[in-house]
Write a protein that binds this DNA or RNA. Structure first.
Lengths: 322, 322
DNA sequence: CTGAAAGCGCTTACAG
DNA sequence: CTGAAAGCGCTTACAG
């Protein structure tokens, strides 16, 4: 094992003490420019990089942000995971934070508690995506004091905030658009109950109907768990039982795709007989034959914003301490 | 700032020395079971987790594997990035390695050299995906001594190996399939020259033609850089200039989609007039109207395999040292 | 402007 | 089976 270049090697090569090397490289002003230049040259030549562990122990550590992704899947139709990863990663790069990916699921959550996970990985703050309100970690985050930004779960509190689009308004807009196009019987294919967004998207649907004096019919609503196949099945049964329906508002594109398949299989044409609106604007949606009307959601921007928010919170805490 | 629980707190609470706590928690055998049990209880109650930095400095550090992803994009049509990320992440979890995501591009490569990046992040081994042979980091990896597994670039050497499907065979198979279906005039839409796979996929194309005694025509081959739009344009010009072509072999699904669009725009039907074969089996491909024949590639498995390979290499090194 | 020394939280010979 | 002490590679008062 070749020994790695350390601060002592640099000090020796530059003919100064390690104290001076440390200060020169960390940009302290009380080092002569001549000395600093020399030290920087030597360090660069040796490809010296301070040992990050020693640095952290010594007192200088970068904020590290963990992106907690629920049920990370190798096939990511919704593009949510990679969008969030990219957004958080780039924002961390901008703010000089360390980025750590944390995949989680029910099993992992039961094996290691949230606080221990954060301590083990030395995490200062969390951005969580895909978390459900019945997750163990959800409660841990809410009750704990690790600063967290939750995606698509509307919460606030000490060290807590959330990021999501205005789901109520987006849904309201979508359903009003259908109503303005002449539809009166509009079904809704919603996600699972425990997803933060499901309730809000329902509220928007409800609002649009109410404001147009259309009665809400419970039997028009299905909870298809964001699952294409389940949406397909639910739409088959929904349409068979309610032939007057002329439009479907789906809370995700994947479910919209399942809905379209069902509608076509029932011999109905889109959009002549049935209008379908999706949600998310995932990559596949533009390839759906005939196209898919959908509500844009940008995971990259949301992830990026989450880190901005985190930094903002931190800044407030910082300044309130002075 | 609340002080974090450290080994001293645990030692005090358990009424032993920090030496004993360390040994108990690290599973050394020279600790009485009674003591160990007590210590574990206390540690668990306090949610104690050893400071990973101190641990590393002290001498126990986990292998950390960096996944180097070129040009990480928020919209990942090919599903390559998320597949690789998931595969490498899960394999790291299995082997008890640390996982670090490293996004790179030309600009970043020019700002920080590869060795410094690895030292800064304390990286023991690299899995690189999307790297091109004209990347700065490509040369650094080849010449350096950081153990690396390259995806889709055929190299070997000390501390080096690569993972890819057998591109020559896959392409050979695909083109032979077209030939067996009666096609004699087969165009190829290839990726960019500097991608490791492009040459191999061309070789498979060439092999299939040669073994079927069909002359290779240079004008039948386009390099569309894995870009949908460019493939679209290239196919338009290809087909206009060579109306005898009845099949297209595309080195990626995205390019196949561009090709299909071009073919349809030229008033030709698929598959009656023109057959199109893609490569990758990306998520969108199953939604292409009429379906898309494609060669399956599984980024998750490849990423997973990369880590297995890395561990294997490390094992060999380890044993040869004894 | 520079350096000797203490300390960060661990691990690990070493002594008992 | 257990503990005192040295050491990992840094940073940072402190003294000069």
């Amino acid at each position: 094992m070749k020994k790695r270049i350390n601060i002592r090697d640099v000090a020796k090569a530059a003919g100064v003490s390690i104290t001076t090397v440390s200060r020169a490289l960390n940009g302290y002003s009380d080092v002569s420019e001549e000395t600093r230049k020399k030290i920087k040259e030597v360090a660069s030549t040796l490809n010296y990089m301070p040992n990050i562990n020693a640095r952290a122990l010594g007192g200088i550590s970068e904020t590290t942000i963990g992106l907690l992704v629920s049920d990370l899947q190798p096939y990511d139709y919704s593009n949510m995971a990679i969008g969030m990863i990219t957004g958080v990663y780039e924002a961390c790069a901008e703010y000089g934070c360390e980025f750590i990916l944390l995949a989680t699921d029910v099993e992992r959550q039961s094996k290691q508690n949230f606080l221990q996970l954060c301590r083990k990985k030395n995490i200062d703050g969390i951005v969580a995506t895909g978390l459900r309100t019945n997750d163990i970690y959800y409660k841990d985050i809410i009750k704990g004091d690790i600063p967290s930004v939750l995606m698509d779960i509307n919460t606030s509190g000490k060290n807590l905030c959330s990021v999501s689009i205005d789901n109520v308004k987006a849904s309201d807009d979508a359903v009003k658009y259908l109503i303005e196009s002449g539809h009166r019987h509009i079904g809704m294919i919603n996600g699972e109950h425990v997803a933060g967004v499901s309730k809000e998207r329902f509220l928007g649907y409800e609002k649009a109907l109410k404001e147009s004096n259309i009665d809400l019919k419970k039997e028009y609503i299905k909870y298809s768990d964001f699952n294409e196949q389940k949406a397909y099945e639910d739409v088959i049964s929904l349409m068979k039982g309610n032939k007057e329906i002329t439009a479907l508002f789906c809370a995700s594109d994947l479910m919209a795709i399942g809905a379209i398949k069902a509608v076509e299989e029932l011999g109905l044409r889109i959009p002549e007989d049935i209008s379908v609106i999706g949600f998310d604007d995932i990559p596949v949606s533009k390839y759906i034959s005939g196209g898919l009307t959908t509500i844009r959601q940008d995971p990259y921007k949301m992830g990026h914003l989450a880190v901005v928010l985190y930094e903002f919170l931190k800044g407030c805490r910082g300044s309130s301490e002075h």
